[in-house]
């Protein structure tokens, strides 16, 4: 039941992309997303798609993993496609029935919007698939260093994030275990009306919350017992360093974004 959750799943590997500094990957991903929103027409999309395919090939992760990740957002994709398909006016009318009309402009927009969402999700998956959650939050904390000077609790924020990420698999496993235990007592999570099913979740949610609070409590005590007191004067176990490959990747991303901007200028 909960096996489909791929959020934050890391695929171990040693590819070029795996070895990049998390900061580089974060910046490159933001550049990629920016490029995706700048992109106007098929040529730009094709360039973005080509880059994504190259990166996925280099990462050595099976493409099927990316398709599996798209499954949970299938509803959003279909919803976007349908809204754009019927709500866009302009161009020639392709199909008409009662109040529903599909125009050529609508079909094009629907196609591009779906392509944009899929490219967006797949691209960000590449980041989480090749970077451990710990490296990711470390990278984010360092990138947000400037805001720290303004008094924002960057370290606390990134600590919260890494704890949250760290406990997602634990909680999923726990939920699975509790669900199995309740199923062993004849609980049925799969049949019945919507209200019945919502009620059936109670034997799962109550123990899950109890254990989440217990874990939070234990973790807080364990951290205090080891004298954790926040970010002030704290050194790192793993120092992140930018290699020439990282700088090259950043320059490459910049060139890529510039290219997409130029293409968009010409309406391609």
């Amino acid at each position: 039941m909960l096996k489909d959750v791929t959020l934050g799943q890391y695929f171990p590997g040693t590819s070029f992309i795996h070895r990049l500094d998390p900061r580089t990957k974060l910046i490159a991903t933001f550049v990629y997303i920016a490029a995706l929103f700048v992109a106007k027409w098929y040529v730009s999309y094709a360039v973005v798609l080509a880059l994504l395919i190259v990166c996925i090939t280099v990462s050595g992760i099976k493409p099927s993993a990316f398709f599996r990740g798209l499954k949970p957002i299938l509803f959003i994709i279909i919803f976007t496609a349908v809204i754009n398909l019927f709500a866009t006016k302009g161009g020639t009318v392709l199909w008409n029935w009662w109040k529903l009309t599909i125009t050529s402009a609508g079909a094009q927009l629907a196609f591009l919007m779906v392509a944009r969402i899929m490219l967006l999700i797949t691209g960000t998956f590449l980041l989480t698939y090749t970077t451990t959650p710990m490296a990711l939050t470390d990278g984010l904390e360092l990138l947000l260093e400037p805001i720290k000077k303004l008094g924002a609790p960057v370290h606390e924020f990134s600590m919260m994030m890494s704890i949250a990420l760290r406990f997602i698999p634990t909680l999923i496993e726990e939920a699975d275990k509790i669900a199995s235990a309740q199923k062993a007592r004849g609980a049925d999570f799969e049949t019945g009306s919507l209200t019945e099913r919502a009620k059936a979740l109670l034997p799962l949610l109550v123990p899950l919350f109890v254990s989440a609070f217990r874990r939070a409590d234990e973790l807080a005590v364990a951290m205090e017992a080891r004298c954790y007191h926040g970010g002030e004067g704290r050194t790192r176990m793993k120092k992140l360093t930018m290699c020439p490959a990282d700088w090259a990747t950043l320059i490459g991303s910049g060139v890529f974004l510039a290219g997409i901007i130029v293409l968009a200028r010409y309406g391609l």
Partner: peptide, 19 residues
């Protein structure tokens, strides 16, 4: 489904399933 009533399974640390 019926098998679950005939074969009673007590999990590890079953106290975490109390609700």
């Amino acid at each position: 489904h019926d098998t679950r009533f005939k074969v009673g399974l007590v999990f590890q640390y079953p106290e975490y399933q109390l609700f």
